[in-house]
Design a protein around this nucleic acid. Structure first.
Lengths: 216, 216
DNA sequence: GTCAACAATCGTGTATACAAGAATAGCATT
DNA sequence: AATGCTATTCTTGTATACACGATTGTTGAC
């Protein structure tokens, strides 16, 4: 547990939302949460205020908190921004790559290769995250890295859905290969372009997303 | 005043930080703030939790809240991300421009022209904001617009410093002209590139920023 | 004279109490 | 039977009280 109850609750409720334990639109009753976690309402409220500030829930004055439902269109917009930020991270990584980052990217990349070869989508889901995080870090921009990590977290559930789509695993991995080549070659523009294409959800991939969101 | 004291306090403290009334590194004492605003500590704490979540302050457990000091390097990173997001907004605006957005951009653009011609840097500061906001809105991506507005707010004080630099006013306005042309011509790539250049602080503009930050 | 240990004080973290607004159910009226 | 008004209940918003950890100042020993 974190150092104070408020933060712990924030993480706990955030995870519950992101793992769809609290569904979008659901009302979060302060008293219920307080008794459920065995604390008073005070730290619960503090956690909710923070989640409101992050944008995960909405607190309507005097009418309680509800989990925000992004809806397919907004999720698309979030992926669009994510693509842009990752593109920037990639182009910076290509320019600033050092030995440690290079090794981190290589390591996570080969782990992706193994999971993809094994067809293990759960393992790939995890390794893929680490691969992208290695690129954020390689960009050597703390602020950009934070922004990327935050958006990444929020988009987590939807990423997972996407990997379920047929052939997405091998397609994703071959895109990774091209991205790694561009970064290692120091070609920032190519890295940017490839990452934008890899992360964004154009055309049919958007329909896939809508379909899998509707399926829940 | 907002509907509840917590939100009102959040805005109030946020403005105080952004207008440098609370300087970076300064400690924010809950009791002091509470008496100053004539409320109890509870809403003050809620406001602080939110500001912590946004990233404006840092709450160290049991040791109080301090205003975050970004430092020149981090401010540079923030402008880098801002440039990327504005670039995306511009490219979307070029593609999706409709009549209302076109008129909004034209209106704010010509207001910038007047302030620039008058050499009124305070007026230009305000009109410039509206111009950029018009572009965010023209992109027709709610999420992107929100992100842009949020970052824009945080960078506000530094933007203001930049305008003080000699000749920056007329340079800025001529860059605006090129941006408007690109958007109106439907040239997304050009709009993206021009906005990235306009917003980012490369080369000597970074030294200007450092100098003006040190001057305070 | 310096450093360490202990005590006192100050400020944060959590719980609880109370007030006020919103939701709801019941009653009356058409 | 349906709709509108009222009263009750339930939940949120704010204040206050209390406990615990951190900071600081003082005293004593080396």
């Amino acid at each position: 547990m974190s150092e104070n109850v408020g933060r712990w609750l924030r993480d706990e409720i955030e995870n519950s939302i992101l793992s769809n334990e609290f569904s979008p639109g659901e009302r979060l009753d302060e008293t219920v949460l307080a008794t459920r976690f065995g604390v008073s309402r005070t730290p619960v409220r503090e956690a909710l205020m923070q989640l409101d500030a992050i944008g995960l829930i909405e607190i309507r004055p005097r009418r309680g908190a509800i989990v925000i439902d992004p809806g397919p269109h907004r999720v698309y917009e979030m992926f669009e921004v994510m693509a842009e930020l990752e593109g920037l991270a990639g182009s910076l990584a290509a320019r600033r790559l050092d030995k440690a980052s290079r090794e981190a990217i290589t390591a996570t990349h080969s782990r992706c290769e193994q999971s993809a070869a094994a067809g293990d989508s759960d393992a790939y889901y995890y390794d893929n995250e680490e691969f992208h995080k290695a690129i954020y870090a390689a960009g050597r921009s703390d602020f950009l890295e934070e922004q990327c990590l935050q958006l990444h977290r929020r988009l987590r559930p939807y990423r997972r859905l996407q990997l379920r789509v047929r052939n997405r695993l091998s397609t994703s991995f071959s895109e990774h290969c091209a991205i790694v080549d561009a970064i290692f070659a120091g070609d920032g523009d190519a890295a940017r372009r490839l990452l934008r294409g890899h992360v964004g959800i154009q055309g049919e991939r958007f329909s896939d997303l809508v379909a899998s969101m509707a399926a829940r």
